[in-house]
Design a protein around this nucleic acid. Structure first.
Length: 617
RNA sequence: GGGCCCGUAGCUCAAUUGGUUAGAGUAUCGGACUGUCGAUCCGAGGGUUGCGGGUUCGAGUCCCGUCGGGCCCGCCA
């Protein structure tokens, strides 16, 4: 912390004074952290965000202020004037940075009193989320929370400095924008000047940053708030921050280099850690195959094993449901839990409840006995010996291991198996519940498919958005597939220059090289079944802009809160927001969202039409 | 929309699995103590067990509903 400019309230912060300051007349202001009245001498710990300094009131020497000190209560705001004195050698407090000294107070002023706080202000957590969010200003008074705010600031400075050094310009873009279909659900803002019309709060500056490239800004970034009206998770807030980046005349590698540099700068600045660059790259298909996840946590094993081909080879191997799944385009996957991780039957049943909550029909398992037998597992009676042996071999099963299987539609199997793996990893302490465990596993997931099949509507849709550049060698497939909406369409194998940066199982950045040429864009729209009129309606101004000399460009957005969260190793991402909302999107401190004055609604020509409450049965 | 878990003193939790007057730590208040530092010691106050209904001789405990909180699936490019 830089030196304070001394003023009437304080000459130093509460974390500043050292043995070298002994003899100085100083003034401190802060909150009463603790009051230890020994019957004669009184000690007051005075706290601010930088630390704690002990004030001493000796009845002999302090006279009148001694009586004042006895009246002080926790969290009162106090100003103390006095002399820095050295503590006796055997009375130093090595736990405090200021523990070599204390203040002999000559003047004491109560700047403000405080009610007894509903949550205790101390470093270790004593209150739950509900109380912490309701009294956020008190929770934030705790030093670990102040430290996180400072970490966040430091990290932002590192990014700003790094990107500025690489020739980036920070440009602000509108929050009140026109709604465009697709993507996340936006928050709506009614327009008073245009009754019946609405702005949408920007879900991200996506379109604007591409327009900045057309404008020739070349290297843009922005630390920007984004808004999405979707259901929340531990790592999602309705308003959150991105470090948004877009660059012209670049390829994927150039974008990676800029992001890697920015993140390395953050880790160096905040943690003093030198990350190994460049980050590893993992093809999307490999990530899905080995971990069932496009953002795998690679800090531990328990990898998935693909068994679909084995099942096909044995024509179901006596298990009818597996055969049905393999024959109808579904997949079969297995996972081996080594024998040192004991799993009694009751816990396997709990696992089954867990996976059923994610859409699984059940949980097939087998405990390996001597000679690779499957003991009394339900499947043991029906599985053909040949397939059992092949399963064992594919999974590397040894006596005492537990095999877990999942089969069905690909998306479900991947979701279930990926979450099962994480669950087991945490349960058996292979990774911590939260925090890095000392491992910072950054890597890029690259080359995902541009399209995915929508089973419900029996057609191909954009896997993320329609503007990611297909690989050059996939253009032929794109052209051939543009008119083919069948399940087997060549669109399936069209890969694109999209990429996610993953850290310890969380996506911390994602972006793509964009399509800047009209004819390729048209092909993609054709494949998606979007007509030219529709296209004009939805994306008109962007496409118009692209016809006025759009340079090759691409970009990325870093999920800033998530990154700072992982960097801080706090339990919940809410901990890195000064004022977060709870899981229902409610600000528990101020009660938003809330009803508004009817006159305000009227001004905007908005009528509230609530659905009828359901009648009790 | 769905699954799982939780709700007891200001805060964090317990209550022998349905059995007497619901306890502890901490915080708060009062008292004692002249070198503490998570001070210590003594004492006090603090509860509609979220709310409503049901089962039972008896419910914090079991059942149903409801409200609130958390984690996940769906959703979120």
């Amino acid at each position: 912390m830089p030196q304070l400019r001394p003023n009437r309230y304080r000459t130093h912060t509460c974390g500043a004074l050292r043995a070298a300051d002994v003899g100085q007349e100083i003034v401190l202001s802060g909150w009463v952290d603790a009051n230890r009245d020994m019957g004669g001498v009184i000690f007051i710990d005075l706290r601010d965000r930088t630390g704690v300094t002990q004030l001493v009131f000796d009845p002999q020497r302090s006279g009148g202020v001694h009586a004042e000190a006895a009246k002080l209560r926790g969290e009162w705001v106090v100003q103390a004037k006095g002399k820095v004195v050295a503590r006796p050698a055997d009375r130093r407090n090595t736990k405090l940075e200021t523990g070599d000294v204390e203040i002999e107070v000559s003047e004491l002023e109560v700047l403000n009193r405080s009610k007894t706080p509903p949550i205790e202000i101390r470093d270790d957590l004593t209150a739950g989320d509900e109380a912490r969010l309701t009294y956020r200003y008190l929770d934030l008074r705790r030093r670990p929370m102040q430290r996180v705010l400072q970490t966040r600031h430091k990290a932002a400075m590192a990014v700003r400095n790094h990107l500025t050094g690489e020739g980036f310009t920070e440009v602000e873009t509108p929050f009140l924008i026109k709604w465009t279909p697709g993507g996340a659900r936006p928050f709506l803002v009614p327009s008073r000047l245009h009754p019946g019309k609405f702005y949408a709060l920007a879900e991200s500056p996506q379109l604007f940053k591409q327009l900045l490239m057309v404008a020739g800004t070349d290297r843009y970034y922005q630390i920007v708030r984004c808004f999405r009206d979707e259901d929340l998770r531990i790592d999602r807030q309705p308003e959150f921050t991105q470090v948004d980046i877009e660059m012209s005349f670049v390829e994927q590698d150039d974008i990676f280099a800029s992001v890697e540099g920015a993140i390395a700068a953050v880790w160096k600045e905040v943690l003093g850690i030198e990350l190994k660059l460049p980050f590893e790259r993992v093809p999307f298909d490999e990530a899905m195959s080995r971990w069932g996840n496009d953002k795998p946590d690679r800090r531990f094993g328990l990898e998935h094993v693909e068994l679909t081909e084995v099942v096909k080879k044995h024509d179901g191997g006596g298990i009818k449901i597996m055969k049905a799944v393999a024959d109808s385009g579904g997949i079969v996957k297995g996972l081996r839990l080594p024998k040192q991780h004991e799993m009694p039957r009751a816990q396997i049943d709990k696992l089954e409840t867990f996976v059923k909550g994610m859409g699984a029909k059940g949980l097939a398992w087998a405990k390996i006995g001597p000679d690779g037998s499957w003991g009394n597992a339900p499947l043991a009676k029906v599985i053909a010996e040949g397939m059992r042996k092949d399963f064992n071999q594919a999974l590397g099963a040894e006596e005492g291991d537990l095999l877990l299987f999942q089969f069905g539609p690909e998306a479900m199997v991947h979701t279930v198996m990926a979450n099962l793996r994480l669950h087991l990893g945490k349960k058996f302490g292979l990774i911590p519940e939260y925090g890095s465990g000392g491992k910072w596993d950054f890597f890029w997931v690259v080359d995902p498919p541009l399209f995915e099949y929508d089973e419900e509507h029996k057609r191909w849709v954009a896997a993320h958005h329609a503007f990611s550049m297909p690989h050059r060698e996939c253009l032929a497939d794109l052209e051939r597939g543009a008119g083919d909406q069948s399940h087997a369409s060549p669109l399936k194998q069209v890969k694109c220059y999209r990429y996610d940066l993953v850290l310890n199982g969380y996506e911390v950045a994602g972006g793509s090289v964009r399509i800047h040429r009209r004819e390729i864009q048209r092909l993609v729209f054709q494949a998606l079944g979007i007509s030219e009129t529709e296209e004009q309606e939805k994306f008109g101004f962007l496409l118009d802009a692209f016809e006025h000399g759009a340079p090759p460009h691409g970009g990325i957005a870093m999920g800033w809160d998530r990154l700072v969260w992982l960097l801080s190793e706090t339990e919940s991402m809410r901990d890195v927001f000064a004022f977060p909302k709870n899981q229902k999107g409610v600000d528990m401190m101020n009660g938003s969202p809330a009803e508004v004055d009817g006159a305000l609604l009227k001004d905007c020509a908005v009528k509230v039409d609530l659905p009828e409450p359901e009648k009790p049965a």
